[in-house]
Amino acid sequence: MTAREGFDHAGRFPLAMLWVPMRQGNRDYAMVQQLGAQVQIDKKNEMYVIVSAVSFIPPDMPCPALRENGLCSIHETKPRRCKTMPFTPYREERFQSELLKPRETWLCDISASAPIVYQDRQLLDRTDFDAERAGLLDEVPQMRRYVEYMLKYNPDIRNNLVKSSLSPKAGEVVTSLSSFLTATRQTNKAQIARQQIEVLQQYLEHTAGKSAYKTHHDYYTRSLAEMQFLASRPD
């Protein structure tokens, strides 16, 4: 989701920044070039990286906004990412069909009588799709500044991105909310931090003592310490 949306939901999601690198040759490269930031691999080669705000929770955990009846509790204001999935803004419209192949975890209607959403390589209702892209495009300059900042102060990230771009198994590159708040000079850091503290404390409890959740648990621990500092400091 966009950083704006992340901040709007700072009292709900444990926020982090997710980096997804992509190399030349990928079919989505042209779209990613528009929405991402260029990262030089070496003198001759480059890649593009998409950086977005994410609700950083283990994949097998339910969304905190999910009601017991299986519906979204924030349907009207949920992030555009939730509205447009399984479509993705990082792929051209005409290539989106394969994203509609039902996945095991989907609980929605996938029968033949389900409403048609995509036909003749076009989305039937593009309102949310366009809105999501517009929101991401708006934040491109800010995201590029952030990427530049991270490459300058955390040069190791370049190697992690290269590894991750070569093998999806190398894992996601996740960076901290505090680094984004600093790099982009957010003026309401203390307020966002106060909202995050409660969320992070909850997720620390949910993920305590389970080795499968270690990556997430460690992130919550670090982020909580940073948010506690930011909350204690007037903006």
């Binding site: 505090s178 680094s179 600093t182 310490a225 940073e226 500092f229």
Partner: peptide, 8 residues
Amino acid sequence: DFNRAEAE
């Protein structure tokens, strides 16, 4: 640019 929270 100093991420004081992280440094702390």
